[in-house]
Write a protein that binds this DNA or RNA. Structure first.
Length: 924
DNA sequence: CGTCAAGGCCAA
DNA sequence: TTGGCCTTGACG
């Protein structure tokens, strides 16, 4: 008997003994987002949905200008802050994990000037760097608290609310005019630890109180926005009725009122569509561009289930093989179509939503969902999805489960019931309400669905979260040889040869692991045929048909939905239909069930216990060590034991562990990725990249028009840049693969290179294609002309912007002297990218590569490994996509030093150039 | 070489 | 169309 049989048996036995499992899960649903308080241990499963306490607190923070009033709560004297340094110390004094502070913060302070790159005007770079560090520090805290799963949700907030409520005494130095604040106000003897406390701003025309309020709010903004928005789909505003973000409302609309030709869409599977747009990033504080639509990508056959006229139907989003252009690598793999947006589900859903309001829908008219309800729904998605969503929904006017009643889950499967299906909606722990699952987001790091996923994984593992004595989890050292364990062993051995494994879909006799879960031959074949032939099923009932061995053929729709819900992986069905062999690691990573491949020995239980008996606390350390030692073996170890063990000892960590495992899987050096894996990796990168967002700064008009508040505007832009970079970092697939302090260090030292690359790439990809760019006989001279024209154009734009901003003319000579070389370098890179028709796929790889490039020789194995991974990824992509351009990869990589050089000049320049250099929208 | 998870075949 | 059985081929 293989291990999955073993696991199945165990689960069944434990299920029968631990019927309270579902109750314990359901308990968490009682925690309302409206109730401030520490995160419950149950909530720890969810890495993304803020704890209720967090949400409320941040809402208060964001809405109240008197955050400082909370200082009394933490015992701080509101007046006991005279300068920014004090603030920094307070922030650092927070009872947070030491490693949550990290070196990045220190690097980010101007006080630590030795860590700053040489700059004639260090303040500007330090300004952004410090803000970056501040925001990242908050992110660190968040990540730490998430990793540690300790209830320290208030810690990041404390660092904010401890900001003094009264202004610091005016600094003695500096009486510079506002426009020069950023460039020359830096006093080497009195460096601002945070850009918000730049002493020079004392010269501003506004009162010190006003300045201070502004600065404090700015800190609040930078810290809070980076914090709350990290990987969560909700915003603090979501908790404020009437103030829910557009994104939140849009997402709620997707959940509740969208129609495709009258069909309520319901994403039930596939790599799915992923949006990194509004929902994930909308921030009322930072005001990201509202005009930018949610960027949506698609990578795998995606199935949308909906209903029309009471008939459940299933729609293949689009023929996966026809999405890609002929030049795209994905043309070889339908299972992993990348990149280009094609009929995005979520964004289209928003459109549908808006259309719904103006057109009559054949389906029952969508209930008007209040924003408050929508916010509540979103807030509860992660927490309640795996529990008792119905109870949540039932309290929301206008919201109802799809089909108007509880239905078989599409996410967490049918639980212990096996073939009990959705009819039995109240069985313990069984999810009864359909919640759209965006698996791509989940795998990309958005773990807002984590409780569900964890539950799912538990089911997939055929285990329960029960960690009671009935489960042999610590037997290796002999200290767990309790009677229950022995009893269990005996029972298990006795049952082992009696009970066959059962299909997770229909409870028929299972024959093994098929497409990610344990199924029978029938369900295996059914799933394969459905995916291969892209069949469309409908359910004449309500999409809640029970799937058992006897009834499985009665409703294909519900059968397939259950397949998806139970975790069968669409991508595992091979596009090329090649028999035998193994699927790629990328596909295998999507599997819900990972188990020991080798048969257990006769006394295998003992050995297996050895592989799963580490304590949870040592899990991360174990992984890290394994990664450092040997990727292959560590992966094997992870697959074999760690996830299983974690599932046993601490189910809330399973998904996190899976992410580590996924990273480990793809961490093998010298690995040549398949094009499918490459496409998936690139797609993940693209999903987390706010390309436009970062290359098109907003509020430029404000910056140009109101020079009285210039420093504040610049600070806001700096905040925005920092915020976006931090958010990008946190969405990176390998985010959890590196310590937070490493991320901080990388951003601190690489932000300018990232911005230059982003700007150049955006200009090349989305910028105007100059007319002199084509059809000229004299190529060299034409390129030269193009270059000089573009440089001149950029300088003119810069000149106009600066003149407008500063209220006085800026001579071109002065401009050339200051930033001429830098503009030339950036322009050169841009032109090169434009000539080679740089693709987004390449850009996102270059971005990661350049960030991980260590110029000081301090390259670590981890960074190197990740960088090599994406270099290999880029190589595969380029070779596959541009087979006729053998030098393309080299050409692209050769731009990186140029970017670094330009970025270095940017760092040395006056920082008020940055917005204009980076903002692609003001060009052309 | 055994294992295992793909796809294929074909009778029902 | 289903599903039991077979073949295939990567992997350890």
């Amino acid at each position: 008997m293989s291990l999955f049989q073993d696991l199945k048996l165990k689960r069944r036995k434990i299920d029968s003994r631990c019927s309270s499992d579902g109750e314990s899960i359901a308990d968490t649903s009682t925690s309302s987002p409206d109730v401030a308080g520490p995160a419950s241990p149950s909530n720890r499963m969810d890495r993304s949905v803020p704890s209720p306490g967090l949400i409320i607190s941040m809402d208060r923070m964001a809405s109240s200008p008197e955050c400082g009033s909370m200082t009394t709560d933490s015992g701080q004297d509101p007046n006991d802050v005279g300068e920014g340094v004090k603030v920094k110390e307070e922030m650092l004094d927070e009872p947070q994990p030491k490693d949550a502070i990290g070196t990045g913060y220190e690097n980010g302070t101007v006080a630590d000037n030795k860590t700053e790159p040489p700059s004639p005007s260090p303040s500007p770079s330090a300004v952004v760097t410090a803000a970056l560090a501040a925001a990242t520090a908050a992110a660190q805290q968040e990540q730490q608290q998430q990793r540690r799963e300790s209830v320290v949700m208030t810690s990041p907030l404390s660092c904010v609310v401890k900001l003094p409520s009264t202004p610091p005494p005016p600094p003695s130095s500096s009486s510079l005019s506002p426009p020069l604040t950023w460039t020359t106000a830096t006093s080497q003897t009195n460096p601002p630890p945070l850009r918000c406390y730049t002493p020079s701003s004392a010269a501003n025309s506004m009162s010190m109180t006003q300045q201070y309020q502004q600065r404090r709010q700015s800190v609040v903004t930078s810290v809070s926005s980076a914090f709350w928005n990290a990987g969560t789909q909700t915003s603090p505003a979501s908790t404020a009725p009437g103030n829910a973000s557009v994104a939140t409302a849009a997402a709620a609309s997707v959940l509740s009122v969208c129609r495709i030709n009258g069909v309520r869409p319901e994403l039930i599977g596939g790599a799915g569509f992923a949006t990194t747009g509004a929902v994930a990033t909308c921030n009322t504080d930072m005001k990201p561009p509202a005009a930018i639509p949610p960027r949506t990508t698609r990578s795998a056959p995606t199935v949308i289930m909906g209903e029309a006229g009471g008939v459940r139907t299933m729609i293949w989003s689009s023929p996966p093989c026809t999405v890609e252009q002929s030049t795209s690598p994905a043309s070889t793999g339908c299972g992993s179509v990348p990149s280009t947006v094609s009929t995005p589900y979520w964004s289209s859903a928003a459109t549908w939503s808006s259309n719904t309001s103006s057109t009559s829908s054949p389906s029952p008219s969508p209930a008007a969902v209040s924003e408050e309800s929508a916010a509540h729904l979103l807030l509860n998605l992660g927490v309640a999805a795996g529990h008792d969503v119905a109870s949540v929904i039932s309290h929301m006017p206008g919201l109802r489960p799809i089909s108007g009643q509880l239905q078989q889950t599409s996410v967490a499967g049918s639980g212990s019931g096996g073939g009990s299906g959705g009819g039995n909606a109240t069985s313990g722990g069984q999810q009864s309400f359909h919640v759209p699952l965006n698996m791509e987001r989940l795998w990309a790091g958005d773990l807002s669905q984590l409780p569900v996923a964890a539950t799912h994984q538990m089911h997939a593992l055929n285990l329960t979260a029960n960690t009671g004595p009935g489960w042999p989890m610590a037997g290796s050292n002999g200290d767990n040889k309790s009677a229950p364990v022995n009893t269990y062993h005996q029972m298990e051995e006795a049952d082992e040869q009696e009970q066959p494994m059962v299909c997770m879909i229909c409870d028929d006799r299972a024959t093994g692991l098929h497409y990610g879960i344990i199924t029978c031959e029938g369900c295996k074949g059914f799933f394969k045929r459905t995916v291969q032939n892209r069949r469309i099923y409908t359910c004449i009932a309500e999409g809640t048909c029970e799937i058992t061995k006897a009834q499985r053929n009665r409703c294909q729709y519900c059968r397939f939905k259950k397949c998806i819900g139970q975790g069968m992986v669409l991508q595992a069905v091979r596009e090329d239909r090649m028999p035998g062999g193994r699927n790629s690691g990328a596909v295998y990573n999507l599997y819900k069930v990972k188990y020991k491949k080798k048969r257990l020995p006769k006394n295998g239980q003992v050995k297996m216990e050895k592989s799963v008996t580490c304590t949870t606390a040592s899990t991360m350390t174990t992984i890290k060590t394994e990664n450092q030692d040997n990727n292959t073996s560590s992966m094997s170890t992870l697959v074999n034991g760690t996830i299983l063990k974690t599932a046993l000892t601490n189910p809330s960590e399973v998904v996190y562990l899976r992410q580590r495992l996924d990273n480990a899987v793809s961490s093998s050096r010298d690995r040549t990725f398949s094009i499918e894996a490459t496409v998936n990796m690139i797609k993940n990168l693209m999903d987390c990249d706010e390309f436009q967002d970062i290359a098109t700064l907003r509020n430029m008009e404000d910056l140009l028009e109101h020079n009285s508040d210039l420093s504040a505007k610049l600070m806001q832009i700096g905040d925005s840049i920092v915020y976006k970079l931090v958010q990008w970092t946190k969405r990176l697939p390998f985010y959890l693969e590196l310590p937070v302090e490493v991320h901080t260090r990388l951003l601190t030292h690489k932000w300018h290179e990232l911005l230059v690359l982003t700007t150049s790439a955006y200009q090349a990809i989305h910028g105007p294609q100059k007319i002199w760019n084509s059809n000229n006989m004299n190529g060299d001279r034409n390129e030269d002309s193009e270059f000089h024209q573009e440089v001149f154009q950029n300088l003119c734009i810069l000149q106009n912007c600066l003149s407008s901003m500063m209220g006085k003319p800026i001579t071109m000579d002065q401009l050339r002297q200051d930033v001429g070389v830098m503009v030339e370098k950036i322009t050169h890179v841009t032109l090169m990218f434009r000539r080679v028709k740089l693709r987004m796929e390449e850009y996102v790889c270059l971005k990661v590569i350049i960030m991980l490039t260590q110029n000081n020789g301090n390259t670590t194995n981890e960074l190197e490994t990740i960088q090599e991974r994406y270099t290999s990824c880029l190589k595969t992509y380029v070779e596959h996509t541009f087979p006729m351009q053998p030098n393309r990869l080299q050409d692209l990589l050769q731009r990186l030093p140029e970017i670094q050089s330009a970025a270095s000049l940017l760092l040395e320049s006056k920082m008020f150039y940055v917005p204009f250099l980076l903002n692609s929208t003001i060009r052309s």
